[in-house]
């Protein structure tokens, strides 16, 4: 994939998102910038609370407000300035330009309406078609995500489907208006391990077939390795490393990324006594350290790291890293 020929479907610049909490104003995202090219699969990894999901919700302007707000920066989605977009204009963007799959297939669908009813509704939000036509499209979409006998399934309620089936329905809904960007927020976390692989395969296949941009948010590096071309590593609301997937796995530059990779259990290597972990805790967003946010947990940290924040800089291998002493 050459970046020069494709144009970005999503471009985020210096995004700042703040939340008003009882502990004061916290910055959930602090100067996040990245791009997603047409047809590219980008993975975002990081621990809980690092800002992965906030990033995803910001792209569709779904940050609950109050208490949250986009305090700065820009999000450009296929030429649309998301931050400046009024809410009713934003509705047309959601589902149409960019769509989202959520983690919990059990609760993410409305329990008192059939899946057909919910799919038809979404299609008719974006296209001026009759209910019958929309239903036909919905059935086709269910067939696309490999749901058997979609004609019967469409009249069923969410509780009549299995977890994997529900996640397929979610994918069908998300893709029913052929968006240019699909955001998948931990799409397989709540599923059985055997089903996880199938659902992930489905997402990757459709992403290629429909030439969509994909943002895959997960804390599972294994999933990223299989389906993403580029990875963004986030920590405490900031991007700390960004690289091609292969490069990142082979040669992680940031000590945090290294820590993440080391903590993946490997079958073929000789058994370790204990799995390496990253010592310490994620700092409180309301009470961030002065220097590098990872310094307190970093095995290589020097005094310099605790005093100054490292900027995100280009590496010689084409990626970016925010560390004074990268590997």
């Amino acid at each position: 994939m050459s970046e020069s020929t494709s144009k970005p479907v999503l471009s985020i610049q210096d995004l700042v998102v703040e939340f008003k909490t009882e502990a004061g104003l916290i910055r959930a995202l602090d100067g996040v910038s990245f791009e997603v090219q047409e047809g590219e699969a980008l993975g975002i990894v990081g621990e809980s609370g690092c800002g992965k999901s906030v990033t995803a919700l910001s792209i569709l302007k779904l940050i609950p407000s109050p208490p949250g707000r986009i305090a700065g920066g820009s999000i450009e989605l296929d030429g649309v300035d998301v931050v400046a977009q009024p809410d009713d204009e934003m509705r047309k963007v959601r589902g149409q330009l960019a769509s989202m799959i959520f983690q919990e297939p059990m609760t993410a669908l409305n329990p008192v309406f059939t899946i057909g009813n919910q799919m038809v509704e979404i299609i008719r939000v974006h296209q001026k078609v009759s209910k019958a036509v929309a239903k036909k499209q919905a059935i086709e979409m269910l067939r696309t995500v490999n749901i058997e006998s979609p004609e019967q399934r469409i009249d069923q309620y969410p509780h009549e489907l299995s977890g994997g089936m529900r996640q397929r329905v979610m994918i069908a809904m998300a893709l029913s208006c052929s968006p240019k960007l699909l955001i998948a927020d931990e799409p397989t976390t709540a599923l059985d391990v055997t089903v996880q692989a199938q659902v992930m395969e489905e997402i990757s296949r459709l992403q290629r077939e429909m030439n969509m941009g994909l943002i895959l948010i997960t804390h599972d590096l294994g999933v990223i390795a299989e389906s993403c071309t580029r990875v963004v590593v986030m920590y405490c609301g900031k991007i700390i490393e960004m690289a091609e997937t292969e490069e990142l796995f082979r040669n992680p530059r940031h000590p945090y990324t290294r820590g993440l990779l080391d903590s993946i259990p490997r079958i073929r290597e000789k058994k370790l006594e204990t799995l390496p972990i990253i010592e310490g805790m994620v700092p409180d967003l309301a009470n961030l350290p002065k220097g590098c946010r990872f310094a307190d947990r970093c095995p290589k940290a020097e005094d310099h790291c605790r005093e100054n924040e490292p900027p995100l800089e280009d590496t010689e291998s084409g990626g970016k890293v925010a560390c004074f002493i990268p590997n």
Partner: peptide
Amino acid sequence: NKDYVRTARAYGVSNRKIMIKHVLKN
């Protein structure tokens, strides 16, 4: 506060329809 409300919102369903259809029936 249920997830299905966020889902509907993420796919562009209007607030009015979310309140009157989705939320009210539940």
